[in-house]
Write a protein that binds this DNA or RNA. Sequence first.
DNA 1: TATTTTTGTTCTCTTTTTGTTCTCGTTTTA
DNA 2: TAAAACGAGAACAAAAAGAGAACAAAAATA
Lengths: 211, 211
Amino acid sequence: MNELTRRQREIFYFLRDNYESFAHSPTLDQLCAALGMASRGSMYKHIMALIAADLIEPFASNKQGGIRLSAKAQRDYTACEHSLPFVGKIAAGKPIEALENINYMPVPAMLKSDKPCYVLQVQGDSMVEAGIFDGDWVIIEQRSYANNGEIVVALIEKSEATLKYIEQSPGKVLLIPANANMAAMVYCPEQVEIQGVLVGQMRSYRSLLSK
Amino acid sequence: MNELTRRQREIFYFLRDNYESFAHSPTLDQLCAALGMASRGSMYKHIMALIAADLIEPFASNKQGGIRLSAKAQRDYTACEHSLPFVGKIAAGKPIEALENINYMPVPAMLKSDKPCYVLQVQGDSMVEAGIFDGDWVIIEQRSYANNGEIVVALIEKSEATLKYIEQSPGKVLLIPANANMAAMVYCPEQVEIQGVLVGQMRSYRSLLSK
DNA sequence: TATTTTTGTTCTCTTTTTGTTCTCGTTTTA
DNA sequence: TAAAACGAGAACAAAAAGAGAACAAAAATA
């Protein structure tokens, strides 16, 4: 983001902010129309500068691939300013304790995924060996499926919510704590509903001191 | 901030409050319009004074780059609830590896203190049992003293930086890892310089997936 | 399949914007 | 009263922005 001119930055932020409104990715002409320009050639020049700055994915020459943000741009410049809802607390063996007033907290882009996410506060020590302590905040990507080995928010029997490693095999779901004192639990797939997958985590040491 | 004239201070605060993000950094003319001035040349003079005071990033001569706050200005004069500087990486046994381009990352207010803070990325496993893993980000409060039991950034012999528990007694400083495989180190107070105290921590699980 | 339209790409040319440097008058401050 | 701060405005060069034409490949259409 170093050597960009103002117009280039303007166009980049426009792309970032209106990305969804272009069903997939805009053409140069569409961009011109959207930004009130008449010359495709001029727009082309700007886009090339953004590609050189690694903010837009380069597309094959003369292939109508489309203009999309680069991985770097998505990591560094999207949703940075946005906040995630702090939904409540999660403790093994209880339903998620929802808050009445949902607070939003700013979260660094790198701690979340590009899918919708929310924040929970962990209660209990079932994941200590995974470095998740009592009182930590976890960022959860809202998702109803998971890969084996991921840490998930699982709803058991529609009543208990818990944060555990998951291992799925046909007809069986294992929810595994990261704590030598606790045993893994075995369920049928019908008993377990995946509500999200862990993508980030935060801890404050201030609260420890004030205790 | 002392030797600035009143108008210069006014302009600086205006910039800080309205253009903290580089995204829409103004031109001299835009600044004039916003502040009710008519002469670009006069505004130029003020901006040059702010650059000399290291409050605004100097820009290449005659390049239309953009007016943006300097690192110093962001550190000292922007509201702390926004962003913290990501300074570099810390690995036991090495000096802090500073980055060329300091990035600022938004950090939830609860992860930091009301004193100046910065962010480091941890390398190594010396604090795993404290739930601080390789690759985690830690938020450090800039401070030259610590209480026993706190986790500190310590500079040893002016050459090695490390993140450890600290225990101080008269004539002796203990730096204690949180890893059963590593031993505590004993130093004289003169050998150890405290550079900051751990107040927050963050982890991304996305990067693990992409590995 | 043949033809038309769209789209990326490369040019050249003109206009506008911007930083920069001056000079000169006015206001504020010591 | 003198110096410092402030501001207006002219002038200039370089950079940036934009228009528009032309062309080939791709996509869409008949």
